[in-house]
Amino acid sequence: MNAPLQMANLRGGYGDADVLFDVSIDLGDREIVVIVGPNGAGKSTAMKAIFGLLKVRDGSIVFDGQDITGWSPDRVVQAGISYVPQVSNIFSEMTVHENLEMGAFLRKGNFSSAYERVYQLFPDLKNKRKAIAGSLSGGQRQMVAMGRALMLQPRVLLLDEPTAGLSPKYMEQIFQISRDVRDTGVSILLVEQHAKQALAFADRGYVLAAGRNRFEGKGSELLADRAMAEMFLGG
């Protein structure tokens, strides 16, 4: 399998304390992979590890055959991975259009086609391009955040709980847009709190608990797994 992103046996955390003990995650080409698990399992931490936002003490992160472990965020972005954090993921005092522009900050030359693609994916944003991002609804802000992350045309998009606090309608919309994004050739790794819905929508899933891999497999298989369902999905 051609896997653009491979995290192998990661151990690390913030300061001196470890949060991850042994986490391995592969993300294939044009694949949507979801990480689920109980609170404090290290789901978001695993994602932050890719962006060099924590100390990785053991294990490796390989992107496109290149070891990117411990790279600074701007280098990771430049290599082709974009990240949408769970909170404060937009420039709330800037307009929607300026948010996208900041997303393309590293891009040289003309990138009007990038705007076009993002506005095509998020038609709602096109009418609001002059609006201050902080004044939008939660779902629209999530779209701004994703749009901003897509401006550099990354190969991999990381989404940290993109549907947290959104209504079911917006959740469905975010999932649908994620599929559209995937179809443009982007692999997506996301962390989700809504485990059932996310596993149903993703290609594959990983279940983390206490900083270690517990289960992995196709989304539908994980959903059908009784042991796993009883432990993590509330029966």
Binding site: S82, P85, S88, F91, S92, E93, E101, M102, L106
Partner: peptide, 23 residues
């Protein structure tokens, strides 16, 4: 201007500015 907006971006959300590759 590009760098003026980068200044506003950093004032607005420093971590996100870093994630955008703003130096």
């Amino acid at each position: 201007t590009r760098w003026g907006k980068a200044m506003r971006a950093m004032s607005d959300n420093r971590d996100l500015a870093l994630l955008c590759g703003i130096d």
